[in-house]
Computed example of a mutant assay.
Amino acid sequence: MMVNVGLGAVFTAGIVFTAYMLMDSWGGASWVFGSVVSVVVCALALLRERQKTLIAGAGVAVTAVAVVVSIVTGHSMPQEPAPITALAMAVLVGSALRTLPLGPATGIALGGVLVTIGAWVDGRTAVTYLATMGMAGALVLGLSLRAVDRASRANGPARRSSWSSGSPQR
């Protein structure tokens, strides 16, 4: 719960900051599309514990559509995924890798990697580097936590001696 509260605060601050910076640099309504995409993907990241496969897949799909729109429109719109969108997608991919069965987790991770490759097709910018670092972190962290969870389940609960059980010894 506290993780989601913290993520929500980071997502909100990032969306507002990005919108402000786009209003200042690109002008006009350039900030609207990226902000809507960010809000949707961030909301999905916050709801990731419900229907994990569907929500993670939807987040990657929304981000993929944003990247395609960014490529098609050329330089008339800011590049996607925006940094906060990339962070939210990384949260979804990392969570999927940690918790989902191997098949769906692999599909979602592959989708995230393809979205990141799409960002590179759109051009080399700070946005591209941030998206790549986020995806790399999601892949490493998600797989690492999956291995830790698997090892802890394999070892089972720690054995307790009679002294730690709380019952008096006679």
Rank of each mutant, 00 (worst) to 15 (best):
Thr12Ile: 04
Gly14Phe: 06
Ile15Tyr: 00
Thr18Phe: 13
Tyr20Arg: 02
Tyr20Ser: 13
Ser25Val: 15
Ser30Pro: 08
Gly34Val: 00
Val36Lys: 05
Val36Ser: 07
Val36Gly: 09
Val37Asp: 07
Val39Phe: 02
Val40Tyr: 07
Ala43Asn: 11
Leu44Asp: 00
Leu47Glu: 01
Leu47Lys: 04
Arg48His: 12
Arg50Ala: 13
Gln51Pro: 05
Lys52Pro: 05
Thr53Tyr: 08
Thr53Trp: 07
Val69Gly: 11
His75Arg: 14
Pro78His: 09
Pro78Ser: 11
Glu80Gln: 14
Glu80Asp: 15
Glu80Met: 08
Ala82Cys: 02
Pro83Leu: 05
Thr85His: 06
Met89Lys: 04
Ala90Asn: 02
Leu92Trp: 06
Gly94Phe: 02
Ser95Pro: 02
Pro101His: 09
Gly107Phe: 04
Ile108Ser: 04
Leu114Gln: 12
Leu114Phe: 14
Ile117Val: 13
Ala119Pro: 02
Trp120Gly: 08
Thr125Val: 12
Thr125Gln: 15
Ala126Cys: 09
Thr132Gly: 03
Met135Ile: 03
Val140Trp: 12
Leu141Gln: 02
Ser144Trp: 05
Ser144Ala: 05
Ser144Lys: 09
Ala147Asp: 09
Arg150Pro: 05
Ala151Leu: 15
Ser152Gly: 10
Asn155Lys: 15
Gly156His: 08
